[in-house]
Every structure is written in C-alpha cells, then in structure tokens.
C-alpha cells in the first residue's frame, strides 16, 4: 500500500496531506484523553501499536506470485476506535519512509489516509455492524480485520487511479489495473491477518463476553 516517494503529482500529494492531517491531530487528542481517563488502557494500546509494527514489517507471499504486507490496524481500531490508529499508523509510516525508503514524505498524506485512516475506520464500522447483527466476537473481529486490511489496499488503488487515469479507459480502467495488483494480492494476506487478529484479541483477553464493544 505504500505509494513510493515522488509517485504522486504534487497537487495530489498536497491534497491527501490536507485530508489526512485533521484525522491524525484528532487521533492524538483522543489518545491523550484515553490515557488520562483510563490509565489501565496503556498496556492494550501498547499491544495494538506492537501488533501494527510487526504486521506491517512482514512482506508475505501471495497466490499472485507477488508479495505484500498486512497492516495490523484492525486490532487497535476495534478496541479503541479508529482515532488511535491514525497516530500509530503515522508513526509506522514515518519510520518506514525515513529509514527504509519505503513510501515517502511527499506521499505520506496519501499513505496515512489508506493505512491509518480508511483501514481502521472500515474495521471499526464492520466490527460494530457485525456485533449489532449478532455475530460472535470472534467472527466480528475476523471480518473487521479482514475488510479493514483489504480497504487499505483498495484506497491505495483509488489514489493511484485518480492521479494516473488510463489514456483510453480513464479512471475505471486505471482502478481495475491498480486493484488487480494490490487488492487481489491482498485477499489471502488479509484473511491471514483476520485469523491472527482473532488469536491475539483472545490472548489479550478481549474476546470474553464482558466485552461490550469499542468506544470511540
């Protein structure tokens, strides 16, 4: 999901930065509030950050013969709402852009939007919806992490298609092309992330019936 440094026209890069910035600022505020009001949340927040650090470092092989990495943002979004993940995801992306030449500063806004905002919001929405529809916590966690991961890669495809529409088939053709690279490769990886997220939620003691659902 990393759009590489310089691979978005300056206007697009700036626009995505302006869209993402308020989410990250609001996420920082909500993180500070959560830490002040619920000191006992510090450890689970650290676990959510750790999970994102591990999963987004793992480039895994997929059936398409390419490899890609999961995002790990679903776990924290389910427990603490998507705001927290905007902050954690940005930290991970900054580390990768500055030290690994993976992603970039000019494309930071776009990458933050796909991995740290869109993915967590989808995961959070799917989690709440699945619980309302009566799914068990384990099933809801799986669906949230799976679809959140996939959403990140669909948004990356959208961002690239907006910036580089196909000469003949326009935006739709370009979207199909980029989604063919990103989203198809991601399907099995997102399923694996969903399964691992369920196991980690369980290990963190968050799958017990007392769990009432995440608070924003």
């Amino acid at each position: 999901m990393h759009i590489m440094e310089g691979f978005l026209p300056a206007g697009h890069a700036l626009a995505w930065t302006c869209i993402s910035a308020p989410f990250v600022v609001a996420g920082g505020r909500s993180l500070r509030r959560t830490r002040a009001e619920k000191p006992e949340a510090r450890l689970p927040i650290a676990a959510a950050a750790g999970f994102t650090f591990v999963l987004s470092a793992l480039k895994l092989p997929s059936v398409t013969g390419s490899c890609s990495h999961p995002t790990g943002t679903g776990l924290g979004a389910i427990q603490f709402g998507p705001g927290l993940m905007a902050v954690i995801g940005t930290i991970v992306l900054l580390f990768q852009a500055l030290l690994l030449a993976h992603g970039g500063l000019s494309t930071m806004g776009a990458n933050v939007f796909s991995m740290a905002i869109a993915g967590p919001w989808v995961a959070y929405g799917v989690w709440n919806l699945a619980r309302k529809l009566g799914a068990s916590a384990a099933i809801a966690v799986f669906l949230a992490a799976f679809l959140g991961d996939l959403a990140t890669y669909c948004v990356t495809s959208l961002q690239l298609a907006l910036a580089f529409p196909d000469a003949q088939s326009g935006f739709a053709g370009a979207y199909a092309k980029f989604a063919g690279i990103f989203a198809v490769t991601q399907l099995p990886l997102a399923a694996a992330e969903g399964l691992v997220t369920v196991v980690v939620m369980n290990a963190l003691g968050q799958l017990q019936p007392r769990l009432k659902g995440a608070e924003a």
């Binding site: 676990a47 950050a49 750790g50 999970f51 650090f53 591990v54 999963l55 580390f95 980690v200």
Partner: peptide
C-alpha cells in the same frame, strides 16, 4: 531495519500478553 521493526513490535506485544 524491517527485522528491527518487527522485533520491536513483537517485543511490545509479547510483554503485554
């Protein structure tokens, strides 16, 4: 650097669990 990123994350997660 990728291994360090993963090790840091796994350490944090393992500590909490």
């Amino acid at each position: 650097l990728f291994a360090l990123q993963a090790a840091f994350g796994a350490g944090l997660l393992g500590y909490v669990i």
